[in-house]
């Protein structure tokens, strides 16, 4: 139609080379650090980060497993906190999602905003607020003070997943179920729960991963307790057997990658 532009193809179907190089660079930027940590978990050097490592050894894994009992209580605490925080977030996040999706009511926007606030505001604000509130109330720092902080910012993760699914599921399936004679609790059990099942699973896994390696809020709400991220942070400040820290870091990466990966797959599959 225009002589200078015979084909209305907006862009070539193949990416220009420059763009591909840029994309490759960004991917490298995103993943190289993980490789570096993995590499240093095998270095023979104990006190510095010389590159390339002077030698490679598997010994640090043995040391981490058998000679460093200080690793395991923090690991256990982190897992417990993450499990409980995830459970609370699953319940609260779903409840809010149900309420928001089923009706329009006064204050609906305010609640959506409130859910988003704990991750929109810097984590340090959540942390210090909770800490000073615990202080004002004279509460000691316990397992539950950590959980309260974690659950607060995990709610939004579950909420986002569930509300997205509820929007896609639409109202008519719920109406069809009621129309076919099912009361609200039957509709919940036979229609709603299966519909949001994978969204709950995905949201729960993300919440777990988020909680498991959270450090910013935890610093304020843990008191003298040590979660695994706090243990790592201590190692950064006062290093002792640096490669052991790397081994733990590799372990943390693995433990968070797996649920995140599964969650992403679940979300992708149901998006089709």
């Amino acid at each position: 139609m225009f002589s200078r532009n015979k084909s209305p193809q907006p862009f070539a179907s193949r990416a220009p080379l420059g763009l591909k190089i840029l994309v490759g660079f960004v991917l490298l930027f995103l993943y190289c650090p993980f490789g570096i940590i993995l590499l240093y978990a095998f270095t023979t050097e104990e006190t510095a980060f010389t590159f390339p490592p002077p030698g490679l050894t598997l010994d640090w894994f043995r040391v981490a497993l058998f000679e460093r009992p200080d690793i395991f209580p923090p690991l256990l605490l982190s897992i417990q906190v993450a499990l409980v925080a995830t459970a609370i977030a699953l319940v609260l996040g779903s409840l809010i999602a149900f309420a928001i999706s089923r009706t329009r009511f006064f204050g609906r926007e305010a609640i959506t905003f409130l859910v988003l606030l704990p991750i929109a505001l810097p984590g340090i604000i959540t942390g210090i607020s909770l800490r000073s509130a615990f202080g004002l109330l004279g509460l000691d720092f316990t397992f539950w003070t950590i959980v309260i902080g974690h659950a607060t910012f995990c709610i939004v993760v579950v909420y986002n997943n569930v509300i997205a699914r509820l929007r896609r599921t639409g109202k008519s399936q719920m109406e069809a179920s009621a129309d076919l004679g099912a009361h609200s609790f039957q509709t919940f059990r036979y229609i709603l729960l299966p519909a949001i099942g994978t969204a709950l699973l995905a949201g729960g896994m993300l919440a777990f991963a988020l909680s498991f390696d959270e450090v910013i809020v935890t610093t304020f709400t843990a008191g003298q307790q040590t979660t695994l991220p706090i243990w790592i942070l201590n190692q950064l400040v006062r290093p002792r057997q640096r490669p052991v820290t790397n081994v733990v870091a590799v372990f943390v990466i693995a433990l968070t990658f797996i649920p995140i990966f599964i969650a992403q797959r679940l979300m992708q599959d149901t998006n089709e």
Binding site: P33, E214, I232, A249
Partner: peptide
């Protein structure tokens, strides 16, 4: 989603 602290540490 993964390990904020570990990623900082890697740098």
């Amino acid at each position: 989603w993964s390990s904020y602290l570990v990623r900082v540490y890697s740098w």
